[in-house]
């Protein structure tokens, strides 16, 4: 299966996200075709400061994909995913804005039509593959491994169409599919980690992250599984020298890799700030 792929700026630097995504996709036969010469999506920073550029950035990414003949863009970051979708949605509603965005893109000979599906890799794996296609790669028994599925905000909000806005279940199903145990009553699964505010308002955001960690720890999760580099970083880094009980925070692709028998080293789990050691 072939998909357009938008890695986004933080993919490469995220702890083993790239390595695990590549390894797992290869095994599953998912071909991720990187959008050539993609740029930063702009994210919240541009929404907060610019009216037209905020649309031009994601539109350029989507126009590049269209030029490459791709019909779907798979994201691995919640912020990228929501930025692209949001831009697509508004551009479809606002002709005037659409015209302006295309005027800007024409400077580089690009054209945005919006004829694309914007998706997240986790959802692609759960919805497009058969459970058996995933299960057949399982090499390691994770049946004692309790995983807290942490979805963050922007995968299901504001749309709530691929899953529930507050209590989604898609990643729970994925965890189950690879033979691990999803933490069933993980109430913090869509609590906010503070996103970029962790930089400027760390004091205000720490309690938010503490809640996410504490709910997992107190309910005996052995790891928190994420699907966004910023979520992963915040929840992981918030535990650094916090003095509270800790729990490692990994990417869903790393969890899949573990089940598929890849080594912790291959999955770059040593890059995590909260140390990870599989003990099942």
């Amino acid at each position: 299966m072939k998909y357009g792929f938008f890695p986004g700026c933080s993919y490469k630097g995220a702890a083993g996200y790239k390595e695990s995504t590549e390894a797992v996709s290869r095994l599953l036969g998912i071909e991720l075709v990187e959008i050539q010469d993609w740029n930063c999506c702009g994210a919240t920073s541009y929404w907060s400061t610019q009216s037209i550029e905020a649309y031009v950035l994601p539109a350029r990414i989507m126009a590049l994909a269209e030029k490459q003949g791709l019909s779907e863009i798979v994201n691995v970051c919640n912020a990228c995913y929501s930025t692209l979708r949001k831009a697509q949605e508004k551009l479809a509603q606002d002709n005037d804005l659409n015209e302006k965005v295309n005027l800007a893109l024409a400077e580089e000979g690009l054209k945005y039509t919006g004829n694309l599906n914007i998706r997240h890799l986790m959802e692609v794996i759960v919805n497009d593959l058969n459970a058996d296609d995933i299960k057949k790669h399982i090499k390691k028994d994770l049946s004692g491994f309790v995983v807290a599925p942490y979805y963050g905000c922007q995968l299901n909000r504001p749309w709530a169409d691929i899953d529930d806005a507050h209590y989604p279940v898609l990643m729970d199903r994925l965890i189950e599919m690879v033979g691990a145990k999803p933490l069933k009553n993980y109430s913090a699964k869509t609590e906010c980690c503070g996103a970029a505010h962790m930089v400027a308002h760390k004091d205000l955001c720490m309690p938010l992250n503490n809640r996410i960690v504490k709910d997992a720890v107190s309910k005996s999760a052995q790891t928190i599984c994420t699907l966004c580099p910023l979520c992963q970083f915040n929840v992981d880094a918030s535990q650094y020298k916090s003095g509270l009980p800790m729990v490692p925070v990994i990417f869903f692709t790393q969890m899949m890799g573990l089940a598929f028998g890849l080594s912790e080293k291959d999955l770059k789990l040593q890059k995590l700030l909260t140390p990870f050691k599989l003990a099942v």
Binding site: T44, W47, C153, Q154, R157, P158, A160, A165, H166, C192, G194, A195, A196, H197
Partner: peptide
């Protein structure tokens, strides 16, 4: 923080 918690509710 753009969490959209308010918007969906």
């Amino acid at each position: 923080v753009s969490c959209y918690n308010c918007v969906v509710k």
